[in-house]
């Protein structure tokens, strides 16, 4: 069975600084992977290489077996055109730390936009689906609201519905609760947990250790651009073998 997300020897530098150093990861379909690590460890960059928001210097990224961002010719990778990259991205959901909802569009218009313009689907069909998705994240009554009329937690839930509307093979979450007030974190995590139960493949960068322990199938601990340790939460969080993992967990727990 092909892995949902497959990273091989992914390497990326910003100038002289190597952010990702020879990363190998294989995430099975329907699993939840939580990426932990200190700030500056390359977590977000790693996530952004999966949908080619960041270009990589070496290695390869595959989602559902398809090479992302490049075309292989012989032993060389040629970067795809922007149009082709955009088409690939519409199969990969992405949820940002700062929501990035479109403020001039209503919640419903935010959800409907990409399926119609990126996937060319029928507007009426998508709108029906979008209303169901908003109901699924508990915002059926907010379809006509503009993002600024919503709380942070509600905005992030709209953003999750917007990602789901593309019917993606995998959804990437980049610190989805870091910009939220503490009392709003729970409602967003609850939505993500429900997705996990439904068997959507999820990759979540977060600082919520409790969430990782409860929901993750695999925890990946990243430091200085390298995978230090990975495995089920019962091992990586509760009985880490690496000193760096232990030191990090002591600081955040």
């Amino acid at each position: 069975m092909t892995a949902a997300v497959d990273l091989r020897q992914v390497t990326k530098s910003f100038g002289a600084h190597r952010v990702l150093d020879d990363i190998d990861l294989e995430l099975a379909e329907g699993t939840v992977t939580v990426v932990l690590g200190p700030s500056g460890s390359g977590k977000s960059t790693l996530l952004r290489t999966i949908n080619h928001l960041e270009k990589i210097d070496r290695g390869q990224v595959r989602v559902g077996g398809t090479l992302i961002g490049y075309r292989q010719v012989g032993d060389k990778l040629h970067e795809l055109s922007e149009r082709e990259v955009l088409r690939q991205r519409s199969r990969i959901g992405f949820v940002f730390q700062s929501f990035n909802l479109f403020p001039h569009l209503t919640a419903l218009e935010n959800v409907v936009e990409a399926p119609t313009s990126a996937q060319g689907r029928d507007r009426a069909d998508v709108a029906t689906e979008a209303l169901a998705l908003l109901a699924r994240v508990g915002l059926a009554d907010k379809a006509g609201a503009y993002p600024r009329q919503l709380s942070g937690g509600q905005q992030q839930r709209v953003a999750i519905a917007r990602a789901l509307a593309l019917q993606p093979d995998v959804i990437l979450f980049d610190e989805p609760t870091s910009a939220l007030d503490p009392e709003l974190v729970g409602e967003v995590l609850a939505v993500i947990k429900e997705l996990a139960r439904d068997g959507v493949t999820l990759v979540v960068v977060t600082h919520e250790i409790g969430f990782a322990r409860e929901v993750a199938d695999t925890v990946v601990f990243l430091d200085e651009g390298r995978v230090v340790e990975q495995g089920p939460p019962s091992r990586v969080i509760d009985h880490p073998t690496e000193e760096r993992t232990r030191a990090f967990l002591e600081r955040v727990l």
């Binding site: 991205r89 700062s98 990035n100 909802l101 936009e113 990409a114 593309l166």
Partner: peptide, 12 residues
């Protein structure tokens, strides 16, 4: 972030 979100959603 607006352009980035649009790009991440694959909007042409």
């Amino acid at each position: 972030g607006q352009r980035e979100a649009a790009a991440a959603l694959g909007i042409p």
